[in-house]
Amino acid sequence: MMHGLRKWGMMTSVISEISALVGHVLSGGYTVQITVNVNGTAQTSDVEPRQLLVHYVRETLGLTGTNVGCDTSSCGACTLHVNGQSTKSCTMLAVQADGQSVTTIEGIAKGDELHPMQKAFMENHGLQCGYCTPGMVMAAIGILDENPKPTEDEVRVALEGNLCRCTGYHNIVKSILACANG
């Protein structure tokens, strides 16, 4: 019995080594150096060509404020700004951000002073569990950049790419309108 287990254990480790090797070859087995301006600071890193922008931000840079919800661009939790435009970072490769400027939720406050949109979300209880919040805030800033004084309907329509599974939309919309009028 013991012998059998050891044998299986060994085989498993051999198989995992082989698959790691195959994975390495399939992935191209190389990294690419990219320099991205993230929240105002130039960041140079070696990344795998297939690395998603959201994984680069979260894992390579340790900026875990940007969440991954669906990784198929449906939910908007991973929304950040690329060159000032709201973008779903789960469907963009990190190498595509080389030389570009990226703003994440960590980059919008000025030191201890919250961004007006963060403040509006706080004051209007624009969050419940918080998972969608970073994406909501980044999408909301993008909405007001394009339409500084939206109506409630316009806010609801423009939020079509962001899901809140607590269904806390009412206060999110209220927060965005408060920020626009504040």
Binding site: S73, G76, T79, Q85, S86, T87, K88, T91, M92, A139, G142, I143, E146, A158, E160, G161, N162
Partner: peptide, 9 residues
């Protein structure tokens, strides 16, 4: 098409 984030790209 999609949402603002998707229409940007």
């Amino acid at each position: 098409v999609g949402s603002p984030q998707i229409r940007h790209v």
